[in-house]
Structures are given as C-alpha cells and as structure tokens.
C-alpha cells in the first residue's frame, strides 16, 4: 500500500510515494540515493543507520518512512558545510577515529546529537548527580555513544575525537 510523503533531506525537499513497509533508512538509501546512513543490523542494535530526525539522533531502520511525513532528516553527508567537514567529522579524521569507516556516518550523527543533548543538560546513566551540569569525560562519552558499534574496535580514537569536538 503506497503513500505519498514529503521529507526534507540534507536541506533538499523530496516528495515520494512509498510502500508503507519501507523504513526511513530504505527510503533514504534505495529511493533517494542518500547512502551515508548505513544498513548494519537493520534491528536498531548497531547504530550505523543513525540520522538526525527533526534535530535528534534516531535509528532510521526502526521507523517507517510513512510515519515521518514532513520530517527533517540530516545525514552525515548533510552536516558538512560545502567543502568544510563538520567539527565532529574533522575530529574523527584528525584522530583516526575509524578504520573501515562503515559505522562512521552513524557515529558522526550520533555524536552530533549527543553533544546537543549534553549541551541541553541531559544526564546519562553514569551521571553521578542528576541535578548538576554534565561534564563530558570519557565515561560519559562511552555511555552516551554505546548505541553505535564499531566492529573494527576504533573506540579509543572515537572517544578522543568526540572529546576534542566537544571542546
């Protein structure tokens, strides 16, 4: 059963007809050719498909495209300003925050969303005092980024890169 939806993807307005079964991830990749969100597990367990959905990080594989009519989607590709990478992207490059790179676009979107959450004062499970402002030390970054798996195991440098980008 098809349904017409409009998405704003990386600044472009896209109107398309989708089968209701199409996930947001598949709509982006297969219908719109936006391939920076990756299909890893397709079950919300790996985070490779993370995008910013109306400004918040979300797993695009666990939401149907039809449920996101009129939404704003920003992928890792849309975060760069012309030729200048986003500060999180720059920091991952500078710190060797990846090896194969498959999880990287999801890591980028997740980190950008996470830094916004921390800036808004959101606590995490490892935050000692729920009333205090958050300081993004290594434990905080690891906890907040735990939804993004990296099978190359580049975590040490991912954490360093995010700390750098947070400053």
């Amino acid at each position: 059963m098809d349904s017409e939806i409009t998405l704003r993807v990386d600044g472009r307005r896209e109107t398309l007809s989708v089968d209701t079964r199409t996930t947001l991830l598949d709509a982006l990749r297969e219908r719109l050719g936006v391939t920076s969100p990756k299909k890893g597990c397709d079950h919300g367990q790996c985070g490779a498909c993370t995008v910013l959905l109306d400004g918040r990080r979300a797993t695009s594989c666990l939401t149907f495209a039809v449920a996101n009519d009129d939404s704003e989607v920003v992928t890792a590709e849309g975060l760069a300003e012309e030729d200048e990478p986003h500060p999180v992207q720059r920091a991952l490059l500078d710190n060797d925050g990846f090896q194969c790179g498959y999880c990287t676009p999801g890591q980028v979107c997740s980190a950008v969303g996470m830094l916004d959450e921390a800036k808004s004062g959101w606590p995490s499970y490892v935050t000692e005092d729920l009333d205090e402002s958050v300081e993004l030390d290594e434990d905080e970054i690891r906890e907040r980024m735990s939804g993004n798996l990296c099978r190359c195991g580049a975590y040490a440098n991912i954490v360093t890169a995010i700390r750098e980008a947070a400053e």
């Binding site: 919300g44 985070g47 979300a58 797993t59 666990l62 499970y125 735990s146 939804g147």
Partner: peptide, 12 residues
C-alpha cells in the same frame, strides 16, 4: 530510563 536501550532509541 537512562539505563535502557541507547540514546537514539530513547529519542524514539
């Protein structure tokens, strides 16, 4: 709540 799932899942 914060011990459950991941940041991107809690947003959904």
């Amino acid at each position: 709540l914060l011990s459950g799932a991941s940041g991107q899942l809690r947003n959904l």
